[in-house]
């Protein structure tokens, strides 16, 4: 079980100004575990998601992301541990949680034979919103997801990206504080991904807390303010991207290029260690060093190191 990482908590010694004080977490998980027989899908994870953040859950297929989301969304009973949403336990008050969250599952489940507006009307009714407000609400939602001209279109006639946006509008129909988006960019073309990313940033600016999972790490890198890296049902690291980079990579990496085309990447904790390692490399390695360059530490690299796969990658890189 990983240690709890309380993201963004201020130093207890030097109080920060009130405006910079962290907001309480909107989601808090402690020892959250889900087992199916002998299979442990989620293995005692702890994390906090601050209100207003965009929290990215990174992990490969089968890491336990969707199961974690299903427990947050009051669909699954945890085998052990707890999760609260705005202080509400989904096991005790599932309706309270459902009012607070909007969930977009990893598959686009829409009623293809309905028009976009009928689809949204159904969910407005399902959330028991006053009928008098439906039309204005639908107008606003369709404008937000840039589908105003598709109001009367049959859902089946829309592209996958548009369906994804209809699904997002559905998740927003009751104006939830927390949005849970499970692999929202899956299957989208590059343009649709960019549009989705912009939409997420817009929603974040509206004060929504967004929890998003993906195995396409570049997407999360661009939008997330908080990250958790998950594999095999466990959270291997969590925090801000900077915190994770520091904890995972020792701070910096340098690529050393040799004459003849070989190269190697060196990870080091700080500037002095970096200098020492480079000097040692130049002195000991029989090959001629022709250059050094800092390696941009992208999310993919962090993920590989955190999940213990960096050695394989480094070896592959050195052999190339």
């Amino acid at each position: 079980m990983t240690d709890a990482t309380t993201i963004g908590i201020a130093s207890p010694i030097v109080p920060e100004p009130a405006a910079a004080r962290p907001t309480p977490p909107i989601v808090r998980a402690r020892g959250l575990t889900k087992r199916y027989g002998s299979l442990t899908a989620v293995d005692g994870i702890d994390f906090d998601i601050p209100a207003g953040s965009i929290f990215g859950l990174i992990g490969p297929n089968g890491a336990g992301k969707s199961t974690t989301f299903a427990m947050i969304a009051s669909l699954l009973i945890p085998t052990s541990g707890t999760v609260t949403i705005s202080g509400i336990d989904p096991m005790q008050d599932p309706k309270g949680v459902r009012k607070a969250i909007g969930w977009m599952p990893d598959t686009i489940g829409v009623y293809g034979d309905l028009t976009v507006e009928d689809y949204l009307r159904f969910f407005a009714a399902a959330y028991r919103l006053p009928k008098a407000n439906w039309e204005g609400l639908i107008d606003g939602l369709l404008e937000l997801v840039n589908l105003g001209d598709k109001r009367l279109a049959q859902v089946d006639s829309l592209s996958r990206g548009m369906k994804q946006r209809v699904s997002l509008a559905r998740a927003l129909v009751h104006d939830p504080d927390l949005l849970i988006l499970d692999e929202p960019a899956s299957g989208l073309d590059p343009r649709a991904r960019v549009e989705l990313r912009e939409l997420l940033l817009q929603l974040s600016s509206m004060g929504k807390t967004i929890v998003i999972s993906s195995h396409i790490l570049a997407e999360l890198d661009a939008v997330c303010t908080q990250l958790a890296i998950m594999e095999g049902g466990r959270v291997h690291a969590s925090g801000t991207p900077a915190e994770i980079r520091t904890s995972a990579g020792g701070g910096r990496r340098v690529r050393v290029d040799f004459l003849g085309g070989d190269s190697v990447e060196i990870a080091c904790a700080g500037e002095h260690e970096q200098a020492a390692l480079l000097v040692e490399l130049v002195n000991r390695d029989p090959r001629t060093v022709i250059g050094f360059s800092p390696v941009a530490d992208d999310l993919e690299g962090i993920y590989m190191r955190v999940t213990g796969r960096v050695a394989d990658v480094a070896a592959t890189g050195a052999n190339q």
Binding site: A73, W103, G109, A126
Partner: peptide, 9 residues
């Protein structure tokens, strides 16, 4: 589409 209904009210 079932989960979307189940997660509604």
């Amino acid at each position: 589409t079932l989960r979307a209904m189940q997660i509604s009210l």
